[in-house]
């Protein structure tokens, strides 16, 4: 795949200015299961990459390796030219630059919505409490949940919780945002409000890696679609190309199953 040569260049010389996330030759096993097989993927600054594929294809795992919530067995991952360090203070610093939105929201259950969005700013970025609150309220307004600021996460709907989670990640001014199936745990009528917030973010030029089953979002917001199956990247293409004219049989099979009903 073309990613290899780009990676090589990134390793040898100074990284190309707009390669933000570079995975090269990444392998990972869960016991006997080879979940990620020789993954090469380069994400440019400002790019929106949507990762799709059948369940168990390794796409969530791929997403989680980028901020090292999952460790890898071999290969290399670099963010903004810096290789991912071992667990510790340096990794924590790097994670602060990588926003993550989870399938199950994972809002801090014992903190109010506002505290959820200010906590990282205050404890990690050492921001002043007042400035952090101001910023949090701006972000909460932006994703349309400003009026819920003083409630606890459990008092919000799933869609609202996920939008708070997006605001919480944005509050750290991340260089890249990872979305790990952000709408899969939502009731159907709440999916759109979350996708709209994500679409807005994409329009604003945020670099995004989105693992999702929402083909509509892939079509409308992605610069590139990455199709994964059985731990491998099977196909990479623009959304138009991928959805209208998939090259691999695996992708054709996948699309025929999800698009025809």
């Amino acid at each position: 795949m073309s990613g290899v040569s780009v990676t090589k260049a990134a390793d040898d010389a100074a990284p190309a200015a707009d390669d933000l996330v570079v995975l090269s030759n990444v392998n990972k096993h869960f016991g006997a299961l080879h979940v990620l097989q020789d993954i090469d993927l380069t994400i440019a600054r400002g790019e929106v990459v949507v990762v799709i594929g059948p369940s168990g294809s390794g796409k969530s795992t791929l997403c989680r390796t980028i901020n090292r919530l999952e460790t890898i067995d071999s290969g290399a991952i670099a963010i903004d030219g810096k290789p991912l360090p071992q667990e510790g203070k340096e990794l924590a610093r790097l994670r602060a630059d990588v926003g993550m939105v989870f399938q199950s929201f994972n809002l801090f259950a014992h903190k109010t919505v506002l505290e959820n969005v200010t906590l990282g700013q205050i404890k990690v970025r050492k921001a002043d409490k007042k400035a952090a609150e101001e910023k949090a309220r701006t972000l909460l307004d932006r994703v349309g949940v400003g009026s819920q600021a003083d409630k606890y996460p459990a008092q919000l709907s799933g869609g609202q919780q996920q939008r708070v989670a997006i605001a919480r990640a944005l509050a750290m001014d991340p260089k890249v945002m990872l979305f790990d199936e952000p709408t899969s745990a939502l009731d159907p009528e709440m999916i759109n409000e979350v996708l709209e917030a994500m679409q807005q973010l994409a329009r604003d030029g945020m670099t995004m890696v989105v693992v999702t089953h929402e083909m509509g979002f892939a079509r409308s917001a992605a610069n590139r679609v990455v199709f994964m199956a059985d731990g491998k990247i099977v196909e990479e293409a623009t959304p138009d190309q991928f959805f209208s004219n998939p090259r691999s049989d695996r992708a054709k099979d996948f699309l025929s199953k999800i698009l025809h009903h």
Partner: peptide, 24 residues
């Protein structure tokens, strides 16, 4: 997921434990 969310915000292990996990 609570600890994962905390770590993904850039909190250290001891911050995650003190601020997120132990209180809950």
């Amino acid at each position: 997921g609570q600890a994962e969310a905390a770590r993904s915000l850039g909190m250290t292990f001891s911050q995650t434990l003190r601020l997120i996990v132990l209180p809950q």
